[in-house]
């Protein structure tokens, strides 16, 4: 057997530019977690179903276990580490998850946060049923989903109210 090929990549993650040399087969999830040490993105199935690895690729939620890091060159990647403020203050979405008990063990949470972050950016007016359908993209074994839907709905409503108030 020969040594697997390595590729030299420039990745833009959370507004920072990183150079990494990884095997071509390395998934984006593993590269984020183990090469860039952004371990907030989780891995729980490696076949696209659970959504724990969901990150934003050019603003769209995508499975980082179903992308090779090499495919991500030239794209803007955002992970859960980008959500909180520089001082560690939680974003409105994160706060909504905490206030609504939208997480228990928290293993699924980064995936749901990035899913919701991408979705609400595109569909700020989404209603509960639409939110539920998007929440069905990812698996959570602890919460029974209701409070995840509550959290995202709560965040969407607050954003809408804030917008109205400022308008």
């Amino acid at each position: 057997m020969t040594e697997p090929d390595k590729v030299l990549l420039t990745l833009k993650v959370n507004d920072a530019v990183h150079e990494v040399a990884v095997e071509a087969r390395r998934t984006l999830a593993d590269t984020l977690r183990h090469d860039l040490e952004l371990t907030g993105t989780h891995v729980a199935c490696e076949h696209g179903v659970c959504g724990a690895c969901t990150v934003l690729v050019d603003g769209d939620p995508a499975r980082s276990c179903l992308m090779f890091a090499a495919q991500a060159e030239g794209s803007e990647i955002r992970t859960v580490e980008s959500l909180a403020g520089d001082d560690g203050s939680l974003s409105d979405l994160q706060t909504a998850f905490s206030a609504n008990h939208g997480l228990q063990c928290g293993f699924c949470t980064p995936g749901f946060l990035m899913l919701a972050e991408g979705f609400l950016a595109e569909r700020p007016d989404a209603d509960r049923e639409e939110i539920r359908e998007v929440v069905s993209s990812n698996l959570c074994r602890c919460t029974g989903y209701q409070t995840i839907v509550d959290s995202i709905q709560d965040c969407a409503e607050r954003r809408r109210n804030a917008k109205e108030a400022s308008a």
């Binding site: 859960v80 994160q94 905490s98 997480l103 928290g106």
Partner: peptide, 21 residues
């Protein structure tokens, strides 16, 4: 009360086994 566990779990700051290097 809101949970003491939440901030680290919400920010990617938690440490699960596979996060250990």
């Amino acid at each position: 009360v809101t949970r003491k566990e939440d901030p680290r779990l919400l920010t990617g700051g938690a440490r699960f086994v596979d996060d250990i290097h």
